[in-house]
Design a protein around this nucleic acid. Structure first.
Lengths: 260, 260
DNA sequence: CTGACTTTGTTCCAACGTTCACAAACACGT
DNA sequence: ACGTGTTTGTGAACGTTGGAACAAAGTCAG
């Protein structure tokens, strides 16, 4: 089912009118659904991993896979994996395992990857340019539909086959391309401003690479990719490992304080 | 102290995704101390955010800050923030708040940022090159100490002031530079191999940008930065939002289309 | 010095996520 | 057809995380 959404008013192309059955309804958080949309956040975060592993298995010609094998390949426990998959339905066969292709399709569908997601990249510097060329973008329903930047030297140039458009026309670009997802790859000082403009233009999903905490309305989702944060977390763990090693050392037993 | 202006955007280009293997092994056995090192994972993940906000406040000349203000700036609840900070000691003053500089120093110290962390980047493509130039690297104790690549055309060239060394000599480079953290920015197919070599050379902290699930010994920490995963999670939420919007629409009330 | 006010650090509890363990369900060999 | 072995899906214990509320501890005005 191709369900293409532009963000304009409401498009009624494939919607069927008529039936009743208003089930999820509650304005805020629906979760009362029987089998409906009660998928935990943590599970959603792992589905892409499963999908990637399933893709690799399919490429290798594997037809079926057990939860143990799949879990090992994904780096999680098998119980967790089975529970995760159970949230999207019973697609396994007891005594056998899961059909790789079918399961991959179901996961794809649940994640919404069977439709097309136009992505707008804001900020075409080193990062934005690299992102525009990222193969993973095109691979699973994501399509870079436009690039915008504020730098006059960059506007008008062609990056990865797309012409960079002026940031001043951001709203028009969103409207014209029907972009659903905005990627912020700007310098930190302008990220919030650009974010606000994306939101007011109708974008409700934002992937932020700028090292700032964005403020957005409640119905907008922001995910952050922050290299410096990841490094700091690694440093913390490394430090903890090192201090433990020192404590365990028969010689340095209690020299404490020492740093590497 | 000082302002560290971190950050510009980071860059990710052609590979993103990884895995991480946090397991029961991550061990915190020693709870013997007064300030027992029992800091929860979730708290550690937020410390870098607090640190960034504190840096911004210091730059703005703010001397003290309350938990409410700090929490608002960091985008978390004030109760959560206070509990997070309580894990590293009592550095606040009741009735007043926290001394910005002092708290920043304490957080830095807890994260291990008062020491120098030599970082080795493996893979100097579009992504690796952008990473090498990332300002956030140098800003907080992280120092890119070496670049390696397998491509003969790249080896020997100078990127961001560093000469790219042959991947064949990776072990020597690690030994010579004393690198503690390895950043994998290689194509997916060679990521595991390079990872293994990093580990056997003694690197125990790895930041992985390659879209593969890495397998490592229990005492090695791997963190992943995965663009494709983030996009898929956004797509899921966007899909959920639109289906809810459709359900709530008086006109399209319950076409129930693609649901399950 | 005293009392009122502010804000931290902590305690309690509810919600969420993970792991264990096992019955139900299915394939397969005999 | 029937028992045996395998694997899923799930009920229930367990641990972790988040949020409200509050006493302790400090400041500040007078």
């Amino acid at each position: 089912m191709t369900d293409r959404r532009t963000d304009l008013p409401v498009d009624v192309d494939d919607a069927v009118l008529g039936t009743h059955r208003t089930e999820p309804g509650d304005g805020v958080d629906d979760m009362t659904g029987p089998t409906s949309r009660g998928i935990p956040e943590a599970t959603v975060a792992r589905l892409p991993i499963y999908l990637r592993v399933l893709g690799a298995l399919a490429d290798a010609g594997t037809r079926t896979v057990s939860s143990d094998e799949l879990a090992a390949l994904a780096g999680v426990g098998s119980a967790k994996l089975r529970r995760d998959l159970s949230h999207l339905g019973s697609y396994g066969t007891r005594g056998v395992g899961y059909d790789v292709e079918h399961l991959a399709y179901q996961v794809s569908r649940e994640l919404g990857l069977t439709q097309d997601w136009p992505v707008l990249i804001v900020g075409v510097g080193n990062l934005g340019s690299a992102l525009a060329g990222y193969a993973g973008f095109a691979s699973r329903g994501f399509r870079v539909c436009a690039l915008v930047d504020a730098d006059p030297d960059v506007i008008g140039t062609t990056v990865r086959g797309l012409r960079v458009q002026p940031a001043a026309e951001l709203e028009d670009v969103v409207r014209h391309t029907g972009a659903c997802i905005g990627v912020l790859a700007t310098p930190a000082p302008v990220a919030q401003r650009m974010c606000d403009r994306l939101v007011s233009a109708g974008v409700r999903s934002i992937l932020n690479f700028a090292p700032v905490v964005l403020t957005v309305p409640a119905d907008v989702d922001v995910r952050k990719v922050d290299l410096s944060m990841e490094l700091q977390i690694l440093a913390f763990k490394e430090q903890r490992k090192t201090s433990k090693a020192i404590a365990a050392s028969p010689v340095l037993g209690s020299a404490a304080g020492g740093v590497r």
